[in-house]
Design a protein around this nucleic acid. Structure first.
Lengths: 185, 185
DNA sequence: CCAGGACGTAACGGTTGCGTTCCGCCGTTT
DNA sequence: AAACGGCGGAACGCAACCGTTACGTCCTGG
């Protein structure tokens, strides 16, 4: 019976509000205000703030990242890095993700949701990427997928989400070359 | 005239409170409560929450990280990584830093303070490390310090502060080997 | 011995947000 | 035509904090 357009408006408002003020300061009143909606409409859908945020965020984050499979490790790596860097440069993502990550260290429910939505998936992507490369003989047999994934995602996350330094023209190329060099050994 | 032991108690309480609830939810009342101190004692020292947090955090963060200089790039790298990983595994640091980083994207004052306290310094460390290595001929002439620093700090930060995965016994060794491989090219 | 000042406590009025309730409106269903 | 139910809006009591103020205690220096 709940009207879909109202639900959509609330979902959008939550994402915007999360980006603007963060989870800690997000208030249902502000969400309703921003969505142009009564508080009652919100409470008709979710029981409280945490429940609402978790459902909305895990829904958005769950929309899966396509697994790169270009046929070569270099190609896969380049594609993955472009996808990740593109995602991390979007304003909403680059604000919400660090915020929720910080919040997750205090709230087990958030931690679990993020773990499921982000890490599990991205790790799977990384594992597949490395696994394929090893199978193809492009990487040595003993390559540690954990180290490899950290080496690929870490610098990007650090630069885009933490240091917030813009990417130079050739930055990605240099980074890709460096990662290739690191793993090729 | 302000009593030093009281000031110390407040400073400690602020750090604890920051780690527990984050900047967004930090309240002066809670800080005073935790420090076993009246609100008046706090307001006698700082004008408001932002001013207080900035002063305390930048003081703590300003206590400089020693510049590694072991004589070889491999040694410097290992030492730096051990220092950084040690620091990031401390509960307070691993909670406060991501929280303030997220907050910094909304508050220019926090951003500037963190920039000054953390990035400038760490970057200087990285630049010196790379510079020395290049001068010694251990790294090729054109090595990009930005990429190198990201490659060193990114994976550690990602793993310890974001993914929050514990470090295996040989993880640091593998990571060091990988970074060496990446830059040696 | 006394003045000064930092201290804790308590209370102030004001703001914000919670989660709930009640109202009147309006489009759908029956 | 009438009943239903989601809707916005307004107000509720409650709680937490804000930043400020007044008060009485204690310690210190002159």
């Amino acid at each position: 019976m709940l009207r879909g357009d109202i639900t959509k408006a609330i979902r959008d408002a939550v994402m915007q509000e999360l980006a603007d003020v963060g989870y800690g300061r997000l208030s249902i009143e502000a969400v309703a205000r921003r969505a142009g909606v009564g508080k009652t409409a919100v409470y008709r859908r979710w029981g409280n703030k945490l429940e609402m945020v978790l459902e909305i965020v895990s829904d958005v984050a769950g929309r899966s990242v396509p697994l790169p499979d270009t046929g070569s490790f270099a190609g896969d790596l380049q594609l993955l890095m472009m996808i990740v860097s593109r995602a991390l440069q979007h304003r909403i993502a680059s604000q919400i993700i660090p915020d929720l990550m910080a919040e997750a260290s205090r709230n087990p429910q958030i931690a679990e949701t993020l773990q499921k939505a982000l890490r599990t998936h991205q790790q799977a992507v990384g594992d597949k990427l490395i696994g394929q490369a090893v199978a193809r003989g492009e990487l040595p047999e003993g390559t540690d997928p954990e180290v490899a994934v950290d080496l690929i995602l870490g610098p990007l996350y650090w630069r885009l989400a933490v240091a917030r330094t813009p990417l130079g023209d050739d930055y990605l190329d240099k980074l890709i070359a460096a990662v290739m060099g690191a793993l090729r050994a």
